[in-house]
Simulated assay, not measured.
Amino acid sequence: MKRTHLPLNGLRVLDAAARHLSFTRAADELAVTPAAVGQQIRALEDTLGVVLFRRTARGLELTAEAEAGLAALRGAFLNFEEAVQAMQAGQSSKALTIAAPRDLTAKWLLPRLAAISVADGEMRFAVMASDEALDFTEANLDLAIRWAEGPGNLEGEALESDGFVTIARPGGGADVEIGWPGCPGEDATTPVRVADAGLAIDAAAAGLGRAVVPELLAGGDIASGRVVVLGEARPSRLGYWLVAPVPQWRQKKVRALIDALTI
């Protein structure tokens, strides 16, 4: 059934004016002018086809028609407030769904989520493989991490990184390049090719050759001594971005996670 269009702003003004029996005091409450209150009431009367107020010697009075609807109107506004509170209650939830590339999840994200969970035992995470075509609403996503030049049409914040680094096994390995889709200079002639940058790090650590990978991704393996950096880091126009549509981005639990991941 098609719902009747409700003049909610006018009804809100009616509620305030009825409580105060004064357009001036209603205007103070609503932070508008008395003239604006009068205009809203007249527009509401035109819409409803009834007279809502009469001026008498004693001041402003409600008509019988206005009195007849006030209890239901105020009950409706209470229901609106409860609905808003129910929707905002999700902000206190500590369950988040995150999408990220598989290699970033394994090499960078999971260790950080584990540390966050240790610090707050109520945190709950669901992590899924990212896809550029992911629908945030359909997938019930709170946050995604993408390898890109920027956030695109989403809200976003970059994860700090030195760009690309060339890595190899400590003491050296095979004198060949390890390629992966998207790596600088990767082509069909690369001697060793793997599915992603995470596997390229593992291949380098195994001694299969040297790999050019995102510094952020290799940070843990570099810090542990599993691989070493050869030469200087290379700046990159690409990077890892935390992204989400505006509604998800503004959620307190998402903002808290972003803060924790970007420390």
Score class of each variant (00 low, 15 high):
Arg3Leu: 07
His5Tyr: 02
Asn9Val: 01
Asn9Phe: 11
Gly10Val: 07
Leu11Ile: 02
Arg12Gly: 11
Asp15Pro: 03
Ala17Phe: 12
Ala18Gln: 06
Leu21Gly: 00
Ser22Thr: 01
Phe23Tyr: 09
Thr24Phe: 04
Arg25Val: 02
Arg25Asp: 05
Arg25Cys: 01
Ala26Cys: 00
Ala27Met: 07
Leu30Met: 15
Ala31Leu: 15
Ala35Val: 09
Ile41Ser: 13
Arg42Asn: 14
Arg42Leu: 13
Thr47Arg: 14
Thr47Pro: 03
Val51Gly: 06
Val51Lys: 14
Arg54Asp: 12
Arg54Asn: 12
Arg55Thr: 11
Thr56Glu: 15
Arg58Thr: 07
Gly59Leu: 06
Glu61Gly: 02
Thr63Ile: 00
Glu65Ala: 15
Gly69Ile: 02
Ala72Gly: 00
Phe77Val: 01
Glu81Leu: 10
Glu82Asn: 03
Gln85Arg: 14
Ala89Gly: 03
Gln91Trp: 11
Ser93Pro: 01
Lys94Tyr: 06
Pro101Thr: 05
Asp103Pro: 06
Leu104Ile: 10
Thr105Ala: 10
Trp108Pro: 00
Leu110Cys: 04
Leu113Ile: 02
Leu113Cys: 09
Ala115Thr: 15
Ile116Gly: 00
Ile116Ala: 15
Ser117Ala: 14
Val118Asp: 09
Arg124Pro: 11
Arg124Tyr: 12
Phe125Gln: 08
Val127Leu: 13
Met128Cys: 08
Ala129Glu: 08
Ala129His: 05
Glu132Gly: 04
Glu132Thr: 07
Glu132Lys: 14
Ala133Met: 14
Leu134Ala: 15
Asp135Tyr: 09
Asp135Ser: 15
Glu138Asn: 00
Ala139Ile: 00
Ala139Thr: 03
Ala139Ser: 07
Asp142Met: 04
Leu143Ala: 02
Ile145Gly: 10
Ile145His: 10
Ala148Pro: 02
Glu149Val: 07
Pro151Asp: 04
Asn153Val: 00
Leu154Tyr: 14
Leu154Gln: 12
Glu155Val: 02
Ala158Tyr: 10
Phe164Ser: 05
Thr166Phe: 10
Ile167Arg: 12
Ala168Pro: 05
Arg169Trp: 02
Gly171Val: 06
Gly171Ser: 13
Ala174Trp: 14
Val176Asn: 10
Glu177Cys: 04
Ile178Lys: 08
Trp180Tyr: 13
Pro181Ile: 00
Gly182Arg: 07
Pro184Ser: 11
Asp187Ile: 06
Pro191Ser: 04
Val192Lys: 14
Val194Ala: 05
Ala195Asn: 09
Ala197Arg: 01
Ala197Ile: 03
Ala204Gly: 01
Gly207Lys: 14
Gly209Asp: 08
Val213Ile: 05
Leu216Met: 00
Leu217Val: 11
Ala218His: 07
Ala218Pro: 09
Gly219Asp: 10
Gly220His: 09
Gly220Cys: 01
Ala223Asn: 06
Ala223Cys: 02
Ser224Lys: 03
Arg226Phe: 03
Val229Glu: 15
Gly231Gln: 02
Arg234Cys: 01
Leu238Phe: 15
Leu238Ser: 13
Gly239Phe: 06
Tyr240Ala: 14
Val243Asn: 14
Ala244Trp: 00
Pro245Lys: 07
Val246Gly: 01
Pro247Leu: 10
Gln248Trp: 13
Trp249Pro: 08
Gln251Met: 14
Val254Gln: 03
Arg255Met: 12
Ala260Met: 11
Thr262Leu: 12
Ile263Cys: 04
Ile263Trp: 04
